[in-house]
Design a protein around this nucleic acid. Structure first.
Lengths: 196, 196
DNA sequence: CACACCAAGTAGACGCCGTTCACATCGGCC
DNA sequence: GGCCGATGTGAACGGCGTCTACTTGGTGTG
């Protein structure tokens, strides 16, 4: 349901209907619609990281790792993470909409959890972890100084996520695919240049 | 209602209730809830551009415009647009959420309008226009080459909009204000560096 | 073996929502 | 003076999320 129609299209009643069950049964497994949405969001994030992993080709078997090659590989990985993120958003806009946006409303009413043992949802999202790893690799291979590494994840994530939204909801909504392709690499390359 | 609670908090019934009127009356002025939301979005965008205009200090009265100064002023204006955008998103997250995201669902079912004279909503948003103007000024003053100017609006908008989302919904949700302040200028400066 | 127990599901209700339709009302214009 | 269009009303329909009391079927234990 999320896949076609986005977050708003997730209906608890419709979900139970498809499961061949009455609406009340859902409350045996989820605290409510929001909880169901959060569970879906987690499932989607796994798919997303998997896709981002396959988007960047695995390191070639040759072990001739001159420092220069290691740096180039780190840069390629960083580009792959960014382009993979954008690619996922374009391929599955409904899923994408849910991932980083689904759970909390705009109000700050998330405080005052019920129990004490409540595990907060503040664990870092897997796709964000992939970005962190790529940036660390850039620092370790000398592509990024330690100073420039600091906070770079926010700059990179901002640009890539913002572009994804631009393509899905914004003025690039119905631009031809080749234009979006070209702009994708432009955004990723420019942001990497700016962050170095 | 949108201001506190975001897009989802806009209820047509509640709106008519506050207006002291029955729900049906709304349909004399709007085609439905989506149309009301679109009207609200337009109103918000005007407020947003006004705020972005005041965020960048007006040009000093001195008319000693060496080319160098004109370039510096163009750069300042570009920074101001970016920081104003982020500032608006932080000050009014509910409004912000609606502006670039309110109207269409994720599906592409916007086609097949009813009448022939239907004016499409593809007119460019005013805050985006402010960005275009700032970038043009950068080109005219030599800050940006004509080649680099091409498509730069998408790179800039991506970074700034993405950062705003990061602050509102993402891992920077409850970061202290000073950290967000510092990261804001980092993002804006890095993206300008990358785009040049 | 029998029994208590508990997870899972059901039936039905409540209040909110968006939307529609037939009907009232009231002001301005020919 | 009578018409008409804009505006609002009242009631209804179906869908939604959520809650509560009640049934049921399997499982582990005395």
């Amino acid at each position: 349901m999320i896949r076609e129609g986005g977050t708003a299209a997730l209906s608890l009643r419709e979900a139970t209907r498809r499961a061949g069950v009455t609406p009340g049964a859902a409350y045996r497994h989820f605290r409510g619609r929001d909880d169901l949405l959060a569970a879906a969001s987690r499932a989607i994030q796994e798919q997303m990281t998997a896709r981002m992993r396959t988007a960047v080709p695995p390191r070639p078997a040759g072990e001739v790792s001159v420092a220069e090659d290691a740096a180039a590989r780190a840069l390629d990985r960083l580009r792959g993470v960014g382009l993979g993120y954008i690619g996922f958003a374009r391929a599955e806009p409904g899923w994408f909409e849910t991932v980083f946006f689904g759970a909390p409303g705009v109000g700050a009413e998330t405080g005052a959890g019920e129990g004490a043992g409540e595990e907060r949802d503040h664990e870092v999202a897997p796709p964000f972890l992939a970005l962190l790893a790529a940036l660390d690799e850039c620092r370790d291979t000398g592509v990024l100084t330690a100073e420039r590494r600091e906070g770079a994840e926010f700059v990179c994530w901002s640009a890539v996520h913002g572009f994804a939204e631009l393509v899905i909801h914004g003025p690039l909504r119905d631009a031809p695919a080749e234009v979006v392709d070209a702009l994708s690499v432009r955004v990723v390359d420019d942001i990497i240049a700016g962050v170095r």
